[in-house]
Simulated scan of single mutants.
Amino acid sequence: MIKNLPKLKTIYGKNKDIAFVDPWAFWNLPKLEEINLSYNYIKGIDYGSFSKLSSVQTLDLSWNEIEYIGQGSFQGMTSLKRLDLSRNYLNRFDATYYFSLTNSDTSLALEELNLSHNKLKLVVNLNSFLRLHVIDLSHNELSYINWTSNIRTSQWLTNLDLSDNYFSVFDLDLSNVYIDKLRIPFNDLYHPDAINVVARINVVVLDGNLWQCEAYTQLLEKFLKMQTTILDYEEDDDIYFLTKFERENYPTCFFSTDSFSPHRSILLLESTYKTRKNPRCRTKNQCPKDMFCKSGRCWKGCEQNICDETAVCVSDSHGFYCHCPRGKIPNPFVTETRCYNVQCFADDDCRKFGNICNEKTHKCEENVK
């Protein structure tokens, strides 16, 4: 339990083998602004785990094994701006239930919500967050969303990401809604009539669905009439990739009519449907040795920026660890992965020399008795 620390601003518990967060674990921390408990083994969030933390602005619970969130677990987090629950095992997200909201609640500050890489089939009541403008629902199992319960009239979204789901029909029939970037690649869309969009959209990413040339042509015409830019997924900052060989050998549809930009092309992705950089897995043995299994996918740990810039990330048999280079050591009394250019933090660092550690100078000195 962490309590009664009036000046504490950050709790950094990243990659610390944490399996459980005790209800009321954080108490009387009036200056706390950030909690990072990513890359752990937390399986659920119970009522009261983060309640009443009214000063916290960032909560990162990504890369865990969370299957459930109890009612009111985030109640009272009125300053929360960024909530990251990506790469867990959630199958539903109900904002009203988790935040114990009422119709009169208008004080929530949430701006960015990351629910990617879960098993979501249901998302409701996101319209309770009046300032929400970044929503990442990619890599889930969504086939339908009731937009009236998730997007408010006159709402402005900078990014709505629905990549890699199971949408065969996409109906965003909401006027007076502006979306700067809508991403719906790698779904089950194949016919232009399956997409009905009334909202104003600046940029849309469509590739990776089951388009045929004729259908895609009709879809381009539809979005171009709306003055929407169509962005190919390989141009986007996505994790999807195709090798040079694949790009040169998969069938391609070319457009050069007056309606479209010259030399525009789109890969016919029936054969590349749902191409992924991170294959599915259930156990670590289904992944290459330099990758680990988390949230149903294989990942390279040393590509996830887990270690501090002063440390070296080392892949180790379906896992990874942060290692200090020669001449530097970690501080065992803090949870961060930073390495320091000192001789010692504790007597154990000096024991091989038969010395003790001077806690002020962090140098090993003779043990004078």
Rank of each mutant, 00 (worst) to 15 (best):
V169P: 05
R276N: 06
C287N: 01
F167A: 01
S271R: 12
S295Y: 07
F186N: 07
A215Q: 12
D173T: 15
L224Q: 11
E246N: 06
N187G: 01
Q286K: 05
N209W: 03
F241P: 01
P279G: 10
N285W: 11
K277H: 11
L219H: 00
D188L: 13
L267K: 07
D193F: 15
C253W: 01
D180E: 12
F254G: 10
S168Y: 15
P251R: 06
F255S: 09
D188K: 14
R282Q: 14
D173W: 08
R276T: 10
L220K: 09
H191T: 12
Y240I: 11
L182V: 05
D237N: 10
T229Q: 06
Y233N: 05
T283D: 05
P185S: 04
W211T: 00
L242G: 07
E234M: 14
D232F: 02
M226I: 10
I179P: 00
D188M: 12
K289E: 15
P279D: 05
L189M: 01
N196R: 12
A215C: 09
K274D: 10
Y190E: 11
T252N: 08
C293K: 02
L268H: 04
E248A: 12
D232E: 14
P279T: 09
N285Y: 13
F292N: 05
A215V: 07
V169A: 12
D207M: 08
D290F: 03
D171W: 04
P251Y: 02
G208W: 00
R183N: 08
S168C: 08
K289I: 14
L220S: 03
K294S: 14
Y233G: 03
L189R: 03
I230F: 05
Y273Q: 09
V205G: 01
V203L: 13
S271A: 14
Q212F: 13
G208M: 03
R264I: 00
E248P: 06
K222P: 06
R183F: 13
I195L: 07
N202I: 04
H263T: 10
N196T: 15
I239E: 15
L172P: 00
T243M: 00
P288D: 12
L182S: 01
D290R: 04
L267A: 10
L220T: 00
Q286M: 07
N202V: 06
D193W: 14
Y178I: 15
K294C: 13
